[in-house]
């Protein structure tokens, strides 16, 4: 038992092999090869239209792929499977959207506790207590009874993170979590993400926050035109990018 547990510890959490996706003739993702280790924080960056969001959405199968495979702890996410299995698999991958996508007809605490109740069958009072703890963790315990429409963008995004965490996923995906926020609210969301990273959460983030990438990421994937052109630790990527496209991207950022 103990050996197999140790083996699993070493197995990469997410592995993408030869992932291709196209809309008609237009190839969005070309032969993506990558892996994310347990506890690793990966930041995906690249110019807009490069396929970052599509890539992260294929990891919990919000987007289908044309060929290749994506595995989570060895289980192929894009294999033919019963929807029940797929739903179970998805519930193990937290996803945070650019536009928050909170459920506006539910209060904050209901947003967080609903999925554990409906999907996992957790008892309502247990889920409720857990939701309050999570809200406290993202600094919004006092907003439990509020509705999403009454919150600022930054607060909504923090509720969205708490909602994803409520399913206790081993992996969290962030799709430009701060891009829809006013500048002064970016910090509060990044702070929550940083604390998650420091607790050992496996994270993949699409973001334009290069400061966050530099401080928190273990590795950066630079992607352009549907290909991962460079993967490197942040200090290496920001100081000495190897790929000419990455050099140009970083030069443009500094302007």
């Amino acid at each position: 038992m103990s050996t197999s547990a140790a083996e699993i510890q070493q197995v990469q959490t997410i592995r993408l092999s030869d992932v291709c996706k196209s809309y008609g003739d237009y190839a969005v993702l070309k032969n993506i090869e990558a892996e994310v280790a347990r506890g690793e924080v990966v930041v995906i960056c690249g110019p807009s239209g490069s396929g970052k969001s599509t890539l992260i959405r294929t990891i919990n199968r919000l987007e289908e792929i044309n060929s290749g495979s994506i595995t989570l702890d060895g289980q192929n996410i894009h294999a033919a499977m019963r929807t029940r299995e797929l739903n179970l698999l998805r519930s193990r991958i937290g996803f945070v959207f650019q536009n928050f996508n909170l459920f506006p007809h539910l209060s904050v605490v209901e947003n967080v506790s609903m999925s554990p109740i409906r999907v996992k069958g957790v008892a309502a009072d247990v889920a409720h207590d857990k939701a309050l703890k999570l809200l406290d963790r993202v600094g919004l315990a006092d907003k439990a009874r509020a509705y999403p429409g009454q919150l600022s963008g930054g607060q909504q995004q923090r509720v969205a993170i708490a909602r994803a965490l409520a399913m206790e996923p081993p992996v969290m995906l962030f799709d430009e979590p701060t891009s829809a926020l006013d500048p002064e609210m970016v910090g509060e969301v990044l702070a929550v993400m940083k604390s998650l990273a420091s607790e050992g959460m496996t994270m993949i983030c699409v973001t334009h926050e290069m400061g966050f990438a530099r401080d928190v990421a273990d590795r950066i994937w630079f992607i352009d035109a549907g290909q991962i052109l460079e993967t490197a630790p942040p200090e290496e990527f920001f100081k000495t990018p190897r790929h000419p496209r990455a050099q140009r991207f970083l030069a443009d950022l500094r302007h």
């Binding site: 998805r90 959207f97 909602r163 399913m167």
Partner: peptide
């Protein structure tokens, strides 16, 4: 967006 969020949390389509 709402359906994406629901699916990402593991809800069935009927749920």
């Amino acid at each position: 967006g709402q359906m994406d969020a629901a699916r990402a949390l593991g809800h069935s389509s009927l749920g």
